[in-house]
Design a protein around this nucleic acid. Sequence first.
DNA 1: CTGAAAGCGCTTACAG
DNA 2: CTGAAAGCGCTTACAG
Lengths: 334, 334
Amino acid sequence: MDRSWGRQWTMQDIARVAGVSVTTVSHTLSGKRAVRPETAARIMRIVEELGYVPDSAGRRLKSGRSRILALAVPDISQSYFGSIARGAEEEADRRGYGLLVSSTADSDPRRESRYFSLVRARAVDGLLYTGSRDMIPGQDLTRLVNEGPVVLVDEQMPTLPVPSVVSDNLRAGQIAGEHLAALGHTRPIVIAGPQGLKSQVERVQGFRQSFNNAIVFYGSFDIESGYRLTADALANGIDFTSVFAANDSLAVGAVRCLRDHGKSIPAEVSVIGVDDIELAELVTPGLTTIRQNTEEMGKVAVTSLLDWLETGEMPTSTVLPVELVERESTGVCR
Amino acid sequence: MDRSWGRQWTMQDIARVAGVSVTTVSHTLSGKRAVRPETAARIMRIVEELGYVPDSAGRRLKSGRSRILALAVPDISQSYFGSIARGAEEEADRRGYGLLVSSTADSDPRRESRYFSLVRARAVDGLLYTGSRDMIPGQDLTRLVNEGPVVLVDEQMPTLPVPSVVSDNLRAGQIAGEHLAALGHTRPIVIAGPQGLKSQVERVQGFRQSFNNAIVFYGSFDIESGYRLTADALANGIDFTSVFAANDSLAVGAVRCLRDHGKSIPAEVSVIGVDDIELAELVTPGLTTIRQNTEEMGKVAVTSLLDWLETGEMPTSTVLPVELVERESTGVCR
DNA sequence: CTGAAAGCGCTTACAG
DNA sequence: CTGAAAGCGCTTACAG
């Protein structure tokens, strides 16, 4: 197979042109050993001129490190995960690492398995994993954590001995409950993502500290699910004056459903979400929500992973604070 | 540095346990040479049991291929690019390649340079590049295209001898112009992204086929810019009944600005965008827009890049069709 | 159907 | 301050 672009230079080539050994070239580039200044300058000039970049595979084979991390998210086209990715990438870049972002297509086992193999094949030094299904790790993930460093982002898996970086989900539920209670609401409903996720269970649990018998409808994380779950509540004749949606997409779906049924928001029904995705302030009415700092989540996850790689000690888990963002979708109970 | 996780198995280990040579193990895994069925079965069982995954660097050093592609986008947290990434990843995965998605932080030269080095260090086999600044390629990019395959996505750079995958931007402008003309509008304004981008120039050019003296305000691609450019037009006392925004974020900003100035949409002013991002149908009023097939753009770009890698022949550029999506933000001229 | 050996491009002890 | 050489884990001609 003929490649149309020119050949790559090797360290051998640089050494030959500079009239030194590859050892000296290597040390000049790494700075791990003193090199005569004039020699070093000559080598660097040649490197610059030819545009030489050391082959990563050669380097990796000896050093054992690729200086690339992987981030697996359920769906990269969702801005929520995009924002985590952005924070993670920013921090990885700052520390001289590349970040490989990949979708698992909502935790498709085959796709996950492929990405886990990147760690196992040493193509990446570690993995940031964002699950979307449940808290019970699959066999592949369980095996993986024995072979390389994995940090869980946005979810916890109690049975897996790895650190996680999550928001204070219990507190998010509490804040939502307190907010609706303060507005005089008494019979809210809750619409949430998959029941198998600890984040959902905790948000519900926190919310029930204010409304201990609130009915919960579990579904998935998208707008359609929010619409459908709300429609179910209406169809069942449940009498509610407010909705706690466990994320903003669900909340947007709830708002659309309520409007389609002639309910005005917040005059007749209040809706509060969780996340504060970009969309939250762009919809009408603006969505009251509990903000998660998703960029920070990505950033902290990278910090944990790199500290682990560099010290050899497994870092502790992190819980990030959340805060109420009041907009127009919640109001005093009618 | 002590790693807390166990050692990795090598092909040597598998060979020793199976009582064969590494040659036989290698051929069993690659299928490039016949192996006695019983021997192959025994080897595969051991591979399975120990969870052996061949080291990617060892493989790459001989084969020259990493089977990883890179996609550089200005900002991964924007759903527009997330959607391109999703399409690209889907196709890469289908053909057995991994995809490394990275933000260039709006074409920050240092960040770009880092990602270009991934190609030059042979860590990835090729690059999909989405520029955000202008059509004049930097020195790094110019050098890169001589060293590895690069496919431009969403933008063209006429001075660079590489294939591109773009939407029919001229046609997008034409459709927008025809739509507004059909509704009786006569004096529209145009708000667009950077003037240095061919996509913007073409959209404006297409639009001017209906309104040859339309005033154009150039800015950047975000909601704030759309707001500001529209405010500028109002402040300058320009009398317009419609706005052609060269992307949906600009359109959303325009809508917000017009509302803040007491204009109702579409009764007083019509607004039409380009892209059809998720947000377009979620805002109120729903945004009339020219849809680009962003997932397809990513998919086709990967197809081009892999065909190039596998045949050695540079593929031709692709122009994808666009279509009008009518929602509520455009109406008959007052 | 199988194996010994060369070699991909680096890094790094070892020796000077 | 410098270099020859071993070796990282694979793949693949070469030889049987």
